[in-house]
């Protein structure tokens, strides 16, 4: 049995240098994703885990089931999804039929993963409802009512959104990034990462009825959506959704950490971002 690591809401196992990461949820005996996860969010979590253990992956070959730009923004890893330019890829991301991924740098070697015996079975109606909601949300005809974050706007802030990259000034860190300072000088591009934990200074739970249109399909299934206002140790503040899978009611003073999850989809495009989860001590 491999050691199972609880990592960013997923379960991870190592076999020498290879890593298997999977969702902790099942439905009808099949491993399935939770409410706001997919192959992209799990791939990012896996890359974070590998990085935390000293393995940095520059390029990686994968089936086109992960979003390369989100992975690149969050981790710096280039994902190659076509059949060309694969020679440069030292690592491969193997996508399972269920909600599993394997990172390996040796396709010749047999992998001997033995997953955890017990997984959490999702409530069938919840699973069906959230799956249906995402399917509807991902339709190109599902358009925003008043909060359109264009691809250009989203990508402009992607490094700050997905990797917490902040701008460094003489006095402090600025996050999210700004353009000009009070002297009219352009601020440097974000280059300094924020700490990956922060303290809750306020929070709210928005009822399903009051949810913005981007969340209108899933909010009733989730029983509302929770947002925390946090302060990072280096000074900047931010607002974040609580990850959908978390059974957690925040309190002022709580320490939280962050994971990449789906935020919402509109016009067929998924927007990814950081969500908060309670920090386990």
């Amino acid at each position: 049995m491999n050691e199972v690591v609880d990592w960013q809401g997923y379960l991870a196992m190592f076999d020498q240098e290879a890593l298997m990461i999977q969702s902790p949820f099942t439905h009808d005996g099949v491993i399935v994703f939770g409410a706001d996860s997919d192959y992209t969010t799990m791939a990012i979590a896996g890359l974070h885990l590998l990085s935390s253990r000293g393995t940095e992956i520059a390029t990686m070959r994968s089936l086109p089931l992960v979003n390369p730009s989100a992975v690149k923004s969050a981790t710096g890893t280039t994902v190659v999804c076509d059949d060309e330019n694969t020679e440069a890829c030292e690592w491969n991301l193997l996508v399972g039929e269920e909600a599993t991924l394997v990172f390996t740098n040796n396709l010749e070697r047999n992998l001997g993963f033995h997953g955890p015996a017990e997984l959490e079975s999702l409530d069938p109606s919840f699973y069906a409802d959230i799956k249906t909601a995402w399917e509807q949300e991902l339709k190109p005809a599902h358009v925003s009512q008043g909060a359109y974050v264009s691809e250009a706007a989203y990508m402009e802030g992607a490094a700050a959104r997905l990797a917490f990259m902040a701008q460094s000034t003489n006095a402090n860190l600025i996050w999210p990034p700004r353009q000009l300072d009070a002297d009219g000088q352009r601020l440097e591009s974000p280059s300094q990462p924020l700490m990956t934990s922060a303290i809750v200074e306020s929070w709210t739970k928005l009822s399903a009825a009051g949810a913005p249109s981007e969340f209108a399909l899933r909010a009733p299934v989730l029983g509302g959506i929770q947002t925390v206002f946090v302060r990072f140790e280096q000074g900047p503040c931010g607002v974040f959704l609580v990850a959908d899978d978390e059974q957690y009611e925040p309190a002022i003073g709580d320490e939280v950490t962050f994971v990449v999850r789906r935020i919402y989809a509109q016009e067929g495009l998924i927007r990814y971002g950081m969500k908060a989860v309670p920090k386990l001590n």
Partner: peptide, 24 residues
Amino acid sequence: RRRFWLGVSGDTEWERLAGLTFPG
């Protein structure tokens, strides 16, 4: 379409992506 009004003048790129409307 009436959901249009829920926080349409807030910070779209950061607050709205955190699920916030003006009540929030």
